[in-house]
Design a protein around this nucleic acid. Structure first.
Length: 275
DNA sequence: CGTAGACCCTGCGCGC
DNA sequence: TGCGCGCAGGGTCTAC
């Protein structure tokens, strides 16, 4: 479920935790993508949360005076606040309690497939975590420019879809939005990245930014099982023009949307107008 | 070096 | 109705 717009929507919903103090943590299942370091998490208890941040699809809980937590939702992760006293449901692997003025809220992490990640850092900047070494620019960052994309892909023979999905090239563009951005820019996903002109890169980068921003404005769209941090299901849904529309007609040219597989992931595009 | 493929894990929908 | 199969929004590691 979580692509970058969902993670950003959750981050905004969790900003109410800024200024609270992490009081307690309970880990019921350590085996995620990486084993949870429970001692490192517990060492953060008593610390005040200064800021909720995001890097790619990672949520950052930055503590005052350094250190903090990193949460990634993987494919099936959810992060939400629960009513006091509600018993843990299956796959709800971690709980955190945050306090302010004697009031306590519980945040829960649920992840059936366990591709998610929860990590802690005792000192220093959370964004210096080794997880982020080698990550490319954020899609909304000025460093993600047509000139950068053009230079970074000279000589590359891989399909442009693969480049969009490569976190070293650009961080946080997932499978849905890679297809959607290519549709908006009318670029065939199989086009070799090294053969895309500077002008077309500009169009593609604008499409990436626009589709992500549209999705965030819609409240973190994508598929219909999304819940925000406060449990609101109501948002739905950005108009997907290509993704999951195999056999449907293209909204631009009336052609038929096709599904192909690239790097083991489904890609959807219109052979009629994406050239 | 760049790239493709396997793999981690559970749940769901579909066809038989 | 029940079962097996393929597929799913992510990221990392290995082998070529």
């Amino acid at each position: 479920m979580p692509e970058l717009p969902e993670v950003e929507t959750i981050r905004r919903g969790l900003q109410r935790l800024e200024g609270t103090t992490l009081a307690d943590v309970d880990v019921r299942e350590r085996r995620l993508r990486r084993r949870i370091d429970v001692a490192a998490l517990q060492a953060l208890c008593g610390r005040r949360i200064a800021r909720l941040g995001r890097r790619a699809k990672y949520l950052l809980f930055e503590a005052e005076r350094g250190g903090g937590m990193i949460v990634h939702l993987g494919m099936s992760g959810r992060l939400f606040l629960v009513a006091p006293g509600s018993p843990p449901q299956p796959h709800e692997h971690v709980s955190w309690w945050f306090e302010r003025d004697g009031e306590s809220v519980e945040l829960r992490f649920q992840d059936p497939r366990r591709f998610g990640l929860v990590a802690a850092r005792r000192h220093g900047s959370v964004s210096d975590h080794p997880l982020f070494a080698g990550l490319g620019p954020e899609p909304f960052d000025a460093a993600f420019s047509p000139g950068y994309a053009y230079r970074a892909t000279r000589g590359s023979r891989r399909p442009v879809k693969n480049a969009l999905m490569d976190a070293r090239f650009v961080a946080g563009v997932g499978n849905i939005y890679a297809s959607e951005a290519l549709w908006r820019a009318a670029i065939n996903p199989k086009t070799r990245a090294g053969r895309i002109s500077r002008r077309r890169w500009q169009r593609l980068l604008e499409a990436v930014v626009e589709v992500l921003q549209d999705a965030i404005a819609e409240g973190g769209t994508t598929l219909n099982d999304f819940r925000s941090a406060t449990g609101d299901p109501g948002y739905f849904q950005i108009a997907l023009r290509a993704y999951d529309r195999e056999g449907a007609s293209c909204a631009r040219c009336g052609g038929t949307i096709r599904r192909i597989v690239q790097v083991g992931r489904s890609t959807y595009y219109c052979p009629g107008c994406q050239v």
